[in-house]
Amino acid sequence: MNVAGRAVLLAGATSPSGLTIAQALVAAGARVIGVGRDRGRLDALAAAIGSDAIRVEQASLTDEAEVADLAARLADDDERIDGVVPLVGGWRGGGGLAGQSEEDYRALEGSFTTVRVVSRAFDAALRSSEAGRFAILSSTAVARPLAGGANYAAVKAASEAWTRAVAQGYAKAARDAEQPLHAAAVVLRVRSLDEVIDQVAARIVALWDADAAELNDRIIDVA
């Protein structure tokens, strides 16, 4: 198996990393669904990729109702979803532990909310795909959290825990149905996304090259 012909939803696709990942997926033969809040940035993404290779949808990824509406709209259009990759993130830190404000934490928490919301909205779609993949981008800070990045590391750790729970759900559903496992949830850890974005994009494309049972519940360090 590979990613060619599969529909991959990038949640938060209008960032520079979203563009790079979308381009890599399209080059490998996938169809990309790019989701974001800003219509202008979505239109720019579609122009950069090509409207025949990407579908753009406007939604607030922390809004459960909006994401549920998006999932229903895609289902109504017979848009099979084979992959979901949340790309919402950001960094706020520094100042030691005392410098970790609640305002900073709330700003970062939106990325965890997005992971929870989109994983629930597309859970059934990914489990029904013959090769469903859910992958988050996390940080090596989870393994070695620093005082000046405590908010950031805490949010990433929570996102990893949630993703591993998604993986357990996929495995349990397959066991209960007495069927082979077709869906996998994966954590990709990076130190600095900007430095390794090409490797991350290649690793996301390669998620469909491996069997789900080999991938599910894995934490993968990207160089």
Score class of each variant (00 low, 15 high):
residue 43 D to H: 07
residue 43 D to R: 09
residue 27 A to L: 07
residue 59 A to K: 10
residue 52 D to H: 14
residue 52 D to M: 09
residue 39 R to G: 04
residue 58 Q to V: 09
residue 34 G to N: 13
residue 32 V to H: 00
residue 42 L to A: 05
residue 50 G to I: 11
residue 62 T to L: 05
residue 55 R to L: 15
residue 36 G to T: 09
residue 31 R to M: 04
residue 55 R to H: 14
residue 56 V to T: 06
residue 58 Q to I: 06
residue 31 R to P: 02
residue 44 A to N: 10
residue 47 A to E: 15
residue 29 G to F: 07
residue 38 D to F: 06
residue 53 A to K: 14
residue 27 A to F: 00
residue 42 L to H: 10
residue 27 A to S: 15
residue 26 V to I: 15
residue 49 I to P: 04
residue 35 V to G: 02
residue 37 R to G: 01
residue 46 A to S: 15
residue 40 G to C: 06
residue 61 L to G: 04
residue 50 G to C: 13
residue 47 A to S: 13
residue 46 A to N: 13
residue 32 V to W: 01
residue 28 A to C: 14
residue 45 L to W: 07
residue 57 E to Q: 12
residue 42 L to G: 06
residue 30 A to V: 03
residue 48 A to L: 09
residue 39 R to S: 11
residue 50 G to A: 04
residue 60 S to N: 15
residue 41 R to Y: 09
residue 58 Q to A: 12
residue 61 L to M: 15
residue 35 V to Y: 03
residue 33 I to C: 05
residue 54 I to Y: 01
residue 45 L to Y: 05
residue 51 S to A: 12
residue 26 V to P: 01
residue 32 V to C: 01
residue 51 S to P: 07
residue 35 V to W: 04
residue 28 A to E: 04
residue 46 A to Q: 15
residue 32 V to P: 04
residue 53 A to N: 15
residue 37 R to W: 05
residue 49 I to H: 01
residue 63 D to M: 05
residue 28 A to G: 05
residue 35 V to I: 12
residue 32 V to I: 05
residue 39 R to M: 08
residue 49 I to F: 03
residue 63 D to Q: 05
residue 46 A to V: 15
residue 36 G to P: 06
residue 33 I to G: 03
residue 53 A to L: 13
residue 34 G to Q: 13
residue 40 G to D: 14
residue 53 A to C: 14
residue 62 T to E: 08
residue 49 I to E: 05
residue 27 A to M: 08
residue 29 G to D: 06
residue 30 A to P: 04
residue 50 G to H: 07
residue 52 D to V: 11
